[in-house]
């Protein structure tokens, strides 16, 4: 038997390794965004000073922006700034990018978190039930439902959703996070604690406003949840099929355990191990998948921030947003890695 004297040590060591590799990945991300920033055809000097600047002004600005330094030095400065949470200044608003991103990000986070919660709540049971009755009507139905989720263009689905549930049926609120009536009251009555509208309104006890916010978020979150569910149910099904064929499942049955316990305790606990990575991946995917949805639902999130900046050539904002999304992505990867090792005793 191999009982380590300090069972946590290998775990910490592995976590350290993961951290190191993620730091490298983040460095790579910065190199890529730096390269993108340097080859951008929009000249940053002209972007700031406008077309009619004199040669003298341009030279002065180039020196100020450090564009005359050697490239490695420019990258060093860039790296230094990013590490010190300086992502530059938005050309459009002349505000620090990080501050703006901080304001926009919670809306995206709220949307994709809600969607992931729905996706897991429906996707995991659907996958498990499909795997335990392969070929059944239920299984066929979830497979098809999932395939449709995979195949449908999310921006189009959003438009159709708006047309149907808002335009025709009037069941949900339209674009935006609140009706315009509440929008005005919001800034006055609700203190911005988390910048997430459902949480903040609940904390302030503004239940009318909360209900209105729910009616607005339910459609975009539901659409994203469909995508997430498509992915999660499909992976759950395949993992579960694999686990249900394992010998320990037979052991549980030999012990006389009811089928429900065999499936939901023995099978699912083992399925959860690889599933953690899948859920994290789908969460990360929703964070960026929200780009298109946000554009349509006028959702003041990061995706919309980036696309808006993109259309007017505000590169610091685009790249800053990209770095933040990338960092969150990397962070989620790390989190799933750690959770994976916590869930699987063999990996500890």
């Amino acid at each position: 038997m191999t009982h380590g004297a300090f069972p946590m040590t290998p775990f910490l060591k592995q976590t350290g390794k993961t951290l190191f590799s993620l730091a490298l990945t983040f460095l790579g991300l910065l190199i890529v965004t730096f390269i993108i920033a340097r080859v951008v055809p929009v000249d940053p000097v002209t972007a700031i000073l406008g077309e009619r600047a004199t040669g003298e002004q341009i030279a002065e600005m180039r020196a100020k922006l450090g564009l005359d330094d050697p490239i490695w030095k420019q990258f060093g400065i860039y790296l230094w700034d990013v590490i010190h949470f300086d992502l530059g200044t938005s050309i459009r608003t002349r505000e620090p990018v990080l501050e703006e991103v901080g304001r926009y990000f919670p809306a995206t986070l709220e949307l994709s978190t809600l969607a992931t919660i729905f996706g897991v709540l429906f996707g995991v049971p659907a996958g498990v039930l499909g795997a335990t009755r392969p070929g059944s009507v239920f299984d066929q139905f979830t497979r098809l439902f999932g395939l449709i989720g995979y195949s449908v263009p999310v921006f189009w689905l959003s438009l159709i959703g708006l047309l149907l549930f808002y335009g025709q049926l009037g069941w949900v609120g339209g674009p935006g996070r609140l009706d315009s009536m509440y929008d005005m009251m919001y800034d006055m009555k609700v203190p911005a604690v988390t910048h997430m509208i459902l949480i903040d309104t609940a904390l302030a006890g503004e239940w009318d406003m909360w209900r209105n916010a729910v009616s607005h978020i339910i459609l975009p979150a539901g659409i994203l949840a469909w995508l997430s569910m498509a992915y999660i149910s499909r992976m759950t099904r395949s993992f579960m099929m694999n686990e249900m064929g394992q010998e320990y499942i037979t052991t549980a049955r030999v012990k006389g355990m009811p089928e429900g316990r065999v499936i939901w305790v023995h099978g699912l606990r083992n399925t959860m191990v690889p599933l953690i990575t899948v859920i994290a991946l789908s969460y990360a995917y929703l964070l960026e998948g929200a780009v298109l949805t946000e554009t349509i639902f006028a959702w003041p999130g990061l995706g919309r921030y980036i696309t808006d900046a993109l259309l007017i050539g505000d590169m610091p904002a685009v790249l800053g947003g990209t770095i933040v999304v990338g960092a969150v992505y990397i962070g989620l990867n790390m989190l799933s890695d750690i959770l994976y090792r916590l869930a699987d005793p063999r990996a500890r």
Binding site: L24, T25, L292, G303, L310, V318, T322
Partner: peptide, 24 residues
Amino acid sequence: MRITDIFLAFPKLILALALVAVLG
């Protein structure tokens, strides 16, 4: 493989957006 991992860690659509912004 490190380079591959870096590209895998990127949010795909957003990287594509940034690239299009640069390339036109």
